[in-house]
Amino acid sequence: MNVTKHYIVPFPLKTVYAAWVSSNTVISPATRMDILPEVGGHYRLIMKSPEYTSSNEGRFLIAEPESHLRYTWEWNKDGEITEIDVRFTSIPEGTEIQLQHSGFKKQQSADIHASGWDSYIIGFCTFLEGAE
Rank of each mutant, 00 (worst) to 15 (best):
D85S: 08
E132A: 03
D34R: 14
H101D: 03
H68I: 08
L128E: 00
P65V: 09
S55R: 12
V9P: 04
W73G: 04
Y43P: 03
P12N: 13
P37D: 04
I91T: 06
L61A: 10
L99N: 04
V21Q: 08
E96L: 12
K14N: 15
D111M: 08
H101Q: 06
Y71F: 15
C125V: 11
K14H: 14
L61D: 10
A19D: 02
R87Y: 08
K77V: 04
P50W: 06
K48T: 14
A110H: 05
K106E: 15
N56G: 06
L36S: 14
W20P: 00
R87I: 13
G130K: 11
T25E: 01
I91G: 03
I97C: 07
G58Q: 04
K105G: 15
A110W: 05
G94E: 04
H113E: 13
E38P: 08
M1V: 13
Y7G: 10
I121R: 01
V86Y: 00
T53E: 15
H6V: 15
T95D: 00
Q100R: 13
E129M: 11
Y17V: 10
S119N: 12
N24G: 13
V86K: 02
E129L: 09
V86H: 01
S115G: 14
F104K: 02
Y7P: 11
D78F: 00
L99S: 04
E57V: 12
A131Y: 08
M1Y: 13
G41W: 02
G79A: 05
T31R: 11
Y52P: 05
E132G: 01
G58W: 05
K106L: 15
Q107R: 15
K77T: 09
P10W: 00
S102Q: 13
R32P: 01
I122V: 13
